[in-house]
């Protein structure tokens, strides 16, 4: 049975997940109100990180580093918000936000895959361009009709704890949750996934097997931009209904950390994002209830320090896709 096989290969992860779940429900049994609020908050903060990390997963699994996620997100938030403000249509806003993400993704894709620009430099350029343009064209006083509403998913939202945490949010949050599982499926179970992984690991093998490496990379990196754009629209139109200069405030970089923390795998990245979200949740809970008095800044630093610790500890075990960062030149 392949399922048993899968279980035995992933027993550490399955075990950890089970423990976490048991712990969460124990917490829920003790104080359902606090438990729901803290986990909801964790997920609320994790949504853009998850979406950002998925952008990274797709890019790096195809062999393209994306450190421009921060900029893509910011432009998505900006373009989405102002399009919604101009048309007074939230749907238009979300679409424009996603499209702007695609545009940024296309820049990264074409400049690096076709133009052979260094991938890291391209990402830095995206970030700098995004900051410049979104602050220069920022206009105050614009409002959107209303942020994307929260809604209850039938049946699922009735599940204790998990229901109110994951199935009573807005559409982008729900989408983020779904896309993790969809992406996991696509990456490991489908033709697209097999080819994408091959292209990111060893492009010349894919090339000789008749796969168009350039086209697949272009498509993946460009399309992943949708998720970055949506992460942005989540910030400006679902989590809030406003745009601020520099609104992404480092979430794109944090997503990058989560991507690595999650070992380039969608589900683990989701777990990592939730963990970071929960740490923040815990920090603010401790602060609000005046229980302990550790400086807030320290807890805020935790994700970054943990990332460094994990990377240092996991040296050699966590491995990036083999061809990440390298341009593919046919016939080389």
């Amino acid at each position: 049975m392949p399922d048993m096989e899968w279980l035995s290969r992933n027993k550490i992860w399955v075990g950890t997940a089970a423990l976490v779940l048991i712990g969460a429900y124990a917490f829920y049994a003790v104080n359902s109100n606090i438990a729901v609020s803290m986990f909801s908050y964790a997920w609320f903060l994790a949504v853009p990180l998850v979406l950002g990390a998925m952008v990274g997963v797709i890019g790096e699994r195809s062999g393209v580093v994306n450190i421009g996620i921060e900029g893509q997100m910011l432009v998505g938030a900006f373009a989405g918000f102002f399009a919604a403000a101009a048309t007074q249509s939230i749907v238009v806003g979300v679409i424009v936000g996603a499209l702007s993400g695609i545009a940024m993704g296309a820049f990264l894709a074409f400049s690096t895959v076709v133009g052979q620009l260094d991938q890291i430099i391209a990402g830095v350029v995206i970030n700098i361009v995004a900051t410049g343009i979104t602050s220069f064209y920022f206009e105050s006083g614009k409002t959107i009709p209303r942020g994307l509403p929260n809604f209850d998913v039938p049946l699922l939202s009735k599940i204790p704890l998990i229901g109110p945490v994951f199935f009573s949010d807005g559409p982008i949050a729900l989408f983020a949750l779904i896309i993790v599982f969809v992406l996991h499926f696509l990456l490991f179970k489908t033709r697209w996934g097999l080819r994408t992984r091959a292209v990111g690991e060893y492009p010349s093998a894919a090339d000789t097997a008749g796969i168009n490496v350039i086209a697949l990379r272009l498509f993946n990196v460009t399309a992943a931009g949708i998720l970055a754009g949506l992460a942005g629209t989540y910030l400006s139109m679902e989590a809030t209904s406003t745009f601020e200069r520099g609104m992404s405030s480092g979430r794109g970089f944090l997503a990058l950390a989560i991507l690595i923390f999650g070992a380039w795998r969608p589900m683990r990245a989701l777990a990592a994002a939730l963990f970071f979200g929960f740490m923040q949740s815990l920090a603010s809970q401790l602060q609000a209830s005046d229980v302990v008095n550790i400086p807030q800044q320290f807890i805020n630093l935790l994700p970054y320090v943990l990332t460094l610790v994990v990377l240092a500890a996991a040296a050699g075990r966590v491995r990036a896709p083999g061809a990440v960062g390298q341009p593919f030149v046919k016939g080389d």
Partner: peptide, 30 residues
């Protein structure tokens, strides 16, 4: 009264998603 300050130094007055999240949590706690 539940009160919470933004923990970061560089974007403490412009992090609207964070503020929204904190509010969400407080509301959930009643």
């Amino acid at each position: 009264v539940a009160k919470v300050y933004h923990p970061a130094g560089d974007n403490a007055f412009s992090d609207s998603p964070w503020g929204a999240g904190e509010a969400k949590k407080m509301l959930a706690q009643g």
